[in-house]
Design a protein around this nucleic acid. Structure first.
Lengths: 343, 343
DNA sequence: ATGAAAGCGCTAACAT
DNA sequence: ATGTTAGCGCTTTCAT
């Protein structure tokens, strides 16, 4: 590949020292080394343009400084920030990242995990498939593989986990809507069974709603199995029809629901925020601009990634021992025009 | 990590054969091997749950089955499809992908490239920083590193390149607008100097416009240095004011420009498509729904990634030799409501 | 059809 | 402060 002829042997001979000394230099073990030889080796290495063979080092040290990241869908805009967070933290610590997208397939997830373990990654950060049975992960853990779960959780007691405060952020959002003056709030959610993240938001909506209204919040809860445009339109029409003369808002608990909701409002010629308050997950680029800005919950996915990496590297270096950590990072509520109540 | 005690040696002893034979089995060199030993080794390996040490293999064979991908910005929604294309193709061929995002920094790009080369990746797919001076890439190429440039180009004559038909797709779009009945088309573009991709679209706009209108197309060309909302609003106002009683359309040549344009139209209470036809790059999720759907050019980024990987792997395996290939993949024009002319 | 043995390029005990 | 040496776990010639 590069001038693979130049090895540590070449350097040691050119420098007139042993391989061991060169190796010490490479690993910055300068303690018992004369400044003279250190400088000399430095020169030789630069002259030669020598670069150590990482593979040989890996074989010897049984550590690769490679972290495997498996995400459920790399195409999801928020996932990318998670990956970026991991990469950013890892880069600082001299680790590199190998990524794979399981595309919501358990089989692929399994395959990639095994393949990464075979490659001797020092640890794994996994954005698991929902309702993973985690048999494989459990086995790997027994074998001493370091694993951190990011965003989606399986079993807090078993695996280090970093996620966001879906429940409390959703509660806070609903609370905020009522306190700003809305008197009825609906939930628009994509299929609940697919994800416990969605489930948390759903539960938060129900729990918080009961503090603010006497009517059954289930009556303004709309779940969409297939995220079809028409379903949203019908649901929104229903909500409007059932809430005449009310100050109403809709909380869309996924980005897809939010986009469909905004579109339904547009098609029904409902003005945001005059006829309808709108808010939801996540802070995607378009939410800043459309409709004069849409109120959203922003999940700190970069931080989730970075914190996952932090946890993982500390486990790897045994700076962290003991039972699994469960870390819930705080989301941010971004108030925008779409929930500016106009009385 | 895993039961690293189990090596090829363990297997060979358990099976009562030599390491060489086991190695042959692992590499599927069954030609000169009795079915009996083959099956026997298979059993032993399964019983033991043995998995070969990839690092040791890499050291010996000087090949890692690892491909490095460096993108300029992993946060860019279209970039992700490129990565996915690479991963998908590589996975099929038994290669894995190591990714890094240079975040538009030449220094980071350089650092990641070197680090990947040190890791002995078998090849590199790079979505280069614009206006890269490519000195490093050139050197690496000399040293025999396989490199494919994806999306952004440097020098067709020097590097295998896979990109999209920015010029011709943009021309086609402008042509389409006029042939559908618009009589004046404006270009909204983010800063040109940052990217030759944008430059191609700009040139295409000018070239094609001259076929359809006698007025100077530069008069309806708006370039935004900073992508500020107000710049877009002012530009749009200007365009509207200068084109009374015209059937007008705007071509936004980047996703950012498109989003800002849609927002400006909204703020100025201009209806799409009644008052203004709108179209642009790229086919992001929100363009499907907002405004009843926005006409866009969809670049085949998944295919760009897959084709890049294809080219690279063929170079690696010497199935492809000779001068650099330059491949331009066709974009797709997706006509939607936003350019439905209403006379 | 299979085995023996050398060696990939590095690190780390152990010596000196 | 530096050198010697024995591997790490594979693959691959060369024998047989």
């Amino acid at each position: 590949m590069n001038d693979s002829k130049i090895t540590i042997d070449t350097v040691s001979k050119m420098a007139g020292v042993s391989k061991a000394t060169v190796s010490r230099y490479l690993n910055k073990k300068y303690e018992h080394m004369s400044e003279q030889t250190r400088l000399h080796i430095k020169d030789i290495i630069e002259d030669l343009g020598y670069r150590p063979n990482i593979i040989a080092r890996n074989l010897k040290t049984k550590t690769t400084k490679l972290i495997g990241v498996i995400v459920s869908d790399i195409t999801n805009p928020v996932t990318v920030h998670l990956i970026k967070g991991v990469m950013s933290y890892c880069a600082k610590q001299g680790y590199q990242v190998i990524t794979a997208s399981s595309d919501e397939s358990l089989e692929k997830e399994r395959e990639y995990i095994l393949s990464m373990v075979d490659r001797q990654v020092d640890g794994l950060i996994i954005n698991v498939i929902d309702y993973n049975e985690y048999g494989l992960l459990d086995t790997l853990k027994q074998d001493g593989v370091n694993i951190v779960l990011a965003d989606r959780t399986i079993n807090k007691a078993l695996f280090d986990t970093v996620t966001t405060d879906n429940y409390s952020a959703s509660k806070m959002l609903v609370e905020k809507l009522y306190s700003m003056g809305y008197d009825t709030v609906a939930l628009f959610s994509s299929d609940l069974l697919k994800s416990n993240v969605r489930l948390s938001r759903y539960k938060a909506f129900l729990a918080e709603s009961r503090f603010h209204t006497t009517s059954d919040p289930l009556r303004t809860t709309y779940i969409f199995q297939n995220d079809l445009e028409d379903e949203y339109k019908a649901a929104l029409q229903d909500f409007i029809a059932n809430t005449p003369n009310k100050r109403r808002a809709v909380f869309a608990s996924t980005p897809m629901a939010l986009l469909n909701l905004v579109n339904a409002a547009y098609e029904l010629h409902l003005n945001i925020p005059e006829d309808l308050g709108v808010c939801g997950y996540d802070n995607l680029t378009w939410t800043k601009l459309i409709g004069g800005g849409i109120t959203v919950v922003e999940q700190p996915f970069f931080d989730v990634g970075a914190e996952s990496a932090n946890l993982l590297l500390r486990r790897i270096n045994s700076e962290l021992t003991g039972p699994p950590k469960y870390i819930e990072l705080k989301s941010k509520l971004i108030l925008r025009n779409s929930t500016q109540i106009k009385s």
